[in-house]
């Protein structure tokens, strides 16, 4: 199928698919960041069971394949009398997995701080809250901009899982499967989606390195 034909027939669907991918990505990334932060707080807290739980959580969601998690949520959970909508399942899968990586990046960001800084801050008489707010968080956030950009791209790639469930409207991967099972879309249908994904990834990457240049700490 030629590109003009394809666009005249499916053009508006592509626009909706792109917006759906963006929406899923933004929502999942926001949830992933909140979850990841909460888990990181647990992992650096002095309460041992919470630390262990945080570590366990990260290991689970860092290592489970996305397809496996989505299948569990969609097909297995109803057997526990927990029935979630397809959209909720996709959002959960696309935010639980990145949340584990988010926590790993935050931990790495925290660990780039020289322990001597904490000791110095304490000997200046700063309280625990002050140390966290004024010494740890500013530095950890600044040094985790680039990993977070990568995380945002990874989250976008994870939202392709949505093509495995009947979601309406479809996202960029689902629409390629849809067009190719209902009409002969050929390579063009694939390339349009691939191009839209790539442009989004490049835009995210550019924005990330711009912010990183502004806030990076030169050591």
């Amino acid at each position: 199928m030629r590109i003009e034909e394809l666009l005249s027939q499916f053009g508006s669907q592509y626009v909706r698919a792109l917006l759906t991918t963006w929406e899923l990505t933004a929502l999942s990334a926001a949830i992933a960041f909140l979850l990841g932060t909460a888990v990181t707080v647990m992992r650096i807290s002095p309460i041992r069971p919470l630390r262990r739980f945080g570590d366990f959580y990260v290991q689970i969601f860092r290592n489970i394949p996305g397809a496996s998690l989505l299948i569990l949520l969609v097909y297995a959970l109803p057997y526990l009398d927990v029935v979630l909508s397809y959209r909720t399942c996709v959002l959960m899968a696309a935010s639980l997995i990145p949340s584990a990586f988010c926590s790993e990046y935050l931990m790495a960001g925290i660990n780039t701080i020289d322990p001597g800084q904490i000791e110095a801050a304490r000997s200046l008489g700063m309280t625990f809250g002050q140390i966290i707010r004024r010494v740890v968080i500013p530095q950890a956030l600044r040094s985790s901009i680039l990993p977070m950009t990568n995380l945002l791209v990874a989250t976008m790639l994870t939202t392709a899982l949505a093509s495995q469930v009947p979601l309406n409207p479809r996202e960029l991967t689902g629409i390629v499967a849809h067009i190719n099972t209902h009409a002969v879309g050929g390579v063009t249908a694939f390339l349009i989606s691939a191009f839209l994904y790539c442009m989004t990834a490049v835009a995210i990457g550019q924005a990330g390195s711009w912010i990183d240049r502004k806030v990076r700490i030169l050591r």
Partner: peptide, 8 residues
Amino acid sequence: TRGVPTLL
């Protein structure tokens, strides 16, 4: 290859 999901 880095910007396109495996599923696609």
